[in-house]
């Protein structure tokens, strides 16, 4: 089969993906067993695999997985509603946009997670501290990409709308927003990465909530296999959230 036909196949690319993953796992297993990599730093994958049952039964990892997952989903919903709305507001009120756009961009690079004491004071030692940090840290890409998407609406499409005597609100809902959606989704995907990292990070830092806290506890007990197994669950949250976003994106922008 030729290379391009292979690339277009439905089965071969994922097969290569899983195959490479399996090979790397195997390589680690061999290197650790041969003592090339110290097993006190990275436990052998077989040991991690065996620790899954333990962390499911003893550490209730599934409940923690649900806790972290729901924090991420809550932050994602807030991001979509608030982030996109702020983006729309800044796009429409030019002076606000000029006044704040640089700050918003600077905020994207700020280590919001280090402000956790402030959030603890405001929201207490509750899931809301975690959700709010994830939400605030993830806002900048959503806002910036919403502005970029709306500003990037092609002039001619707006002129088509105007030639049909559309009102400003019709222009927004029927032309500008659909035209901006693919770019807004880029912002949301970036935002979700920020949110997930921050949420697990804060759980770890304040030793509260879902998978982050479990990773903290297991690491303190020096249960390395358990720690890595718990990290696998964080990756699982990421996969689920991204699959969900992709599905929503495909539903909303079927042309892409």
């Amino acid at each position: 089969m030729k290379a391009d036909a292979m690339a277009r196949s439905r089965v071969i690319p994922p097969l290569i993906g899983f195959g490479s993953l399996a090979l790397s796992v195997l390589a680690f297993e061999v290197l650790i067993r041969l003592n090339v990599i110290s097993k006190f730093i990275v436990p052998p994958p077989s040991e991690i695999a065996m620790s899954f049952e333990r962390i499911i039964v003893e550490e209730h990892v599934l409940q923690r997985f649900v806790a972290t997952g729901s924090e991420v989903l809550t932050a994602a919903a807030m991001l979509t509603v608030v982030g996109v709305s702020i983006g729309v507001l800044l796009f429409q009120v030019d002076i606000l946009r000029r006044a704040t756009e640089t700050w918003v961009a600077a905020m994207a690079a700020a280590p919001i997670v280090l402000m956790y004491p402030l959030f603890l004071v405001i929201f207490g030692r509750s899931p809301w501290t975690i959700i709010m940090i994830g939400f605030v840290a993830a806002l900048p890409p959503v806002i910036l990409k919403t502005i970029e998407g709306l500003a990037g609406t092609r002039r001619v499409l707006i002129n088509v709308g105007r030639s049909f005597s559309m009102s400003e609100s019709q222009l927004f809902w029927k032309i500008m927003l659909p035209s901006a959606l693919p770019t807004i989704f880029v912002g949301l995907r970036l935002g979700l990465i920020f949110a997930l990292i921050n949420i697990v990070g804060v759980e770890f830092l304040i030793n509260f909530g879902g998978l982050g806290q479990l990773i903290n506890e297991l690491a303190e007990r020096y249960d390395l296999a358990g720690t890595y197994a718990a990290i696998c669950f964080v990756i699982l949250v990421s996969i689920i959230v991204f699959a969900l976003t992709e599905r929503i994106e495909r539903w909303l922008t079927p042309a892409n």
Partner: peptide, 21 residues
């Protein structure tokens, strides 16, 4: 005095809505 239902415009640039069939 402005866009009017009696005049339909076709533009030089490609102007279909890419998100619609």
């Amino acid at each position: 005095t402005g866009p009017h239902a009696s005049i339909g415009m076709v533009f030089q640039e490609e102007s279909t809505f890419p998100w619609r069939t």
